[in-house]
Design a protein around this nucleic acid. Structure first.
Length: 258
DNA sequence: GCGACAG
DNA sequence: ATCTTGTCGC
C-alpha cells in the first residue's frame, strides 16, 4: 500500500516539541467517526466470503537497534498475505512518542505490501493518547486508512467502571482525563469517550486476565472499533490479526539473527 | 513537587 | 519490548 499523507510521517531528528506538535496536527487531521465503505458485520474470522474486507494486523519484534515489523493480512479467517521488514531504530521508547520509534519501520513494512487493506489493527493505542494521536492514529492518517489501536495496558484516560475480573465480552468506556489534550475539533473532557476497555477472554483457571484497551485510530468511532475487535477475536486474548503478526515478527526475527 | 505512562 | 526453565493445569 502507499502513503496518502507522507507529510505526516514521523521524521527522525525532530525535537520533542516538534514531535508533539506533529502529533497535534495528526490528531486534528484524524476522524473519530465511522467513515469507511465496508460493513462492520462482514468483518469476521469465519466468513468464507471471498469479498470480505481485508484486515491487516501489524506488530514488531526488536533486536538491538533494529526493528522487525510484520504485517499479516486476513480476508475472513484466511491469511492472504504476510510481509516482514527489518529497519534501523533511531529513537528509544518514550511513553507518548511510540510512533516516532516504531512508525518508520511500520511504514517500511506496509509499503512492501501488495494488498491494500480496508482496516489496519495495531499493537498500541489510537485515540487513547495524550494528544489523541497514538500509533494507530498516526499510521491511519499517513495511509488514510481505517485503523484501530489495541493495547494491553492503559496509557491515559479513565475507565468509567472498575475493570477487575469481568466476564468475556464485557466492556466499559475509557473517558479522557487531565492528561489528554483537546486537539482541533476533538475536545477532551471527562465526557469524551476515547476508547473502551474490552474483556476479550476470561479463563476459568486463571484468577484474572486483564482487559484490552481498544481505541479508534482513524475513520472509526470508539464503538465501532470495539465491535470490530470483538469480531476479530478468537480463542486468545489478542485479536487474531495482531496475534499472528506478533508470531510472524518473532519468526522473522529468529531467521534474521542467524 | 506529585503523578506516571502504549511498546 | 527483551532476557529465560521449569512448571501448574486443562
Amino acid at each position: 500500500m502507499r502513503q496518502v499523507h507522507p507529510e505526516f510521517a514521523p521524521r527522525p531528528g525532530l525535537s520533542r516539541g516538534e514531535m508533539e506538535s506533529l502529533q497535534a496536527d495528526v490528531a486534528a487531521a484524524a476522524t473519530f467517526e465511522d467513515d469507511f465503505d465496508f460493513d462492520p458485520a462482514s468483518v469476521s474470522l469465519d466468513s468464507p466470503a471471498v469479498d470480505a474486507p481485508l484486515v491487516a494486523g501489524i506488530d514488531q519484534a526488536f533486536l538491538d537497534d533494529v526493528a522487525v515489523s510484520a504485517v499479516v493480512v486476513f480476508r475472513g479467517g484466511t491469511v492472504v498475505e504476510r510481509t516482514a521488514a527489518v529497519s534501523p531504530l533511531d529513537l528509544p521508547y518514550v511513553p507518548g512518542l511510540l510512533s516516532f520509534r516504531e512508525g518508520g519501520p511500520i511504514i517500511d513494512a506496509l509499503e512492501s505490501l501488495d494488498s491494500d487493506p480496508d482496516l489496519l489493527v495495531f499493537d498500541g493505542s489510537g485515540r487513547i493518547h495524550f494528544r489523541q494521536a497514538g500509533l494507530a492514529t498516526h499510521m491511519g492518517v499517513v495511509f488514510d486508512t481505517p485503523s484501530i489501536g489495541v493495547a494491553k495496558s492503559l496509557l491515559c484516560g479513565t475507565p468509567k467502571t472498575d475493570t477487575d475480573g469481568r466476564p468475556e465480552g464485557w466492556q466499559t468506556p475509557i473517558v479522557a482525563n487531565r492528561s489528554v489534550d483537546s486537539v482541533g475539533d476533538h475536545e477532551a473532557t471527562s465526557e469524551t469517550v476515547i476508547g473502551y476497555a474490552y474483556q476479550s477472554r476470561q479463563y476459568d483457571s486463571r484468577p484474572i486476565v486483564n482487559p484490552l484497551y481498544v481505541s479508534p485510530g482513524h475513520r472509526l468511532s470508539a464503538e465501532t472499533a470495539v465491535e470490530l475487535i470483538a469480531n476479530l477475536s478468537g480463542d486468545y486474548k489478542l485479536p487474531e490479526p495482531t496475534r499472528q503478526a506478533d508470531a510472524y515478527a518473532d519468526e522473522a526475527k529468529a531467521s534474521y539473527r542467524t
